[in-house]
Nucleic acid binder design. Structure first.
Length: 258
DNA sequence: ATGGCTGAGCTACTCAGA
């Protein structure tokens, strides 16, 4: 079972790249973030034509998340938290894997910049609500997979120049502590669990030749509840899509579970 | 490097991203 997460920075602007990538990587389930469109203008047909169902929580212009899946998924839910700004940032579903029921949670965490503004407060509040909901969920179902664009640099190793980001909304200790708080509820950051010292990134800015200079950061993550650790087969950051024409600024992170 | 580049909505320019 291959599950992939990718912030595509507009599903419609990226549709050719996305379809090519699906054909090459053959995921069972694909989490998309920043689809930047409403449900009504989501390219459902393009995914249907290559054998995938689409479950979409979109909005006009900004944000938006979707789950693309070969098999039909149950219990699709777009109200995992109460979002004060009513932004489309979480979609959840249930996956049956052998005898386990796994709650799939696809997230697009607010960016939060600039710090010391209402945007930063929104990110903090959003994370607080999210952690609180996860705490409740994990008491009912211990099998949880959270993946998406967290907009959090977990540790110094996860960015090309930490000093530049230590007071940024992605790297501030206050925000990184939220990430640790979430993990301490009973999760593993699968990439870091499998790669203790490796320095790889999932995002590179469009400007100033960031990609060419490898000025990147690791802000897209897979968290698996401790109950599912034994199911991990591989975790991989696939840099190829970032090198294509008209790329997203993020690249996919790929998880295989058995 | 609080910049520069990209996309949406719309057709001139602002907002948002990280």
């Amino acid at each position: 079972m291959k599950i992939i997460s990718w912030n595509v920075n507009s599903v419609r602007a990226r549709i050719t790249n996305i379809l090519d990538y699906i054909k090459q990587s053959n995921p069972d389930i694909l989490f998309l973030q920043e689809i930047k469109t409403q449900d009504i203008s989501f390219p459902h047909e393009d995914f249907k034509n290559i054998g995938y169902n689409s479950y979409v929580f979109g909005q006009k212009s900004y944000n938006g998340v979707a789950i693309i899946s070969k098999q039909e998924l149950d219990k699709i839910n777009n109200s995992f938290i109460k979002d004060d700004l009513k932004q489309s940032r979480i979609i959840t579903a249930e996956l049956k894997l052998k005898k386990k029921k796994i709650e799939l949670i696809n997230i697009y965490v607010p960016n939060g910049n600039p710090v010391d503004t209402e945007k930063y407060e929104y990110k903090k509040d959003w994370l607080k609500k999210f952690i609180s909901s996860i705490k409740k969920r994990i008491q009912k179902n211990s099998n949880i997979l959270i993946a998406g664009d967290f907009n959090i640099i977990p540790e110094e190793i996860d960015v090309y120049d930490f000093k530049r980001y230590e007071n940024d909304a992605l790297g501030r200790l206050e925000i990184r502590k939220k990430y640790r708080e979430l993990i301490n509820l009973g999760f593993k950051d699968v990439y870091r669990f499998k790669n203790k010292t490796k320095q790889e990134y999932t995002f590179w800015d469009y400007f100033a030749g960031s990609w060419q200079k490898n000025y990147g950061m690791r802000i897209d993550h897979f968290l698996l509840s401790n109950s599912l650790i034994e199911n991990i087969k591989t975790i991989n950051i696939n840099k190829k899509p970032r090198s294509k024409e008209k790329p997203s600024d993020h690249t996919p992170i790929e998880l295989e579970i058995i």
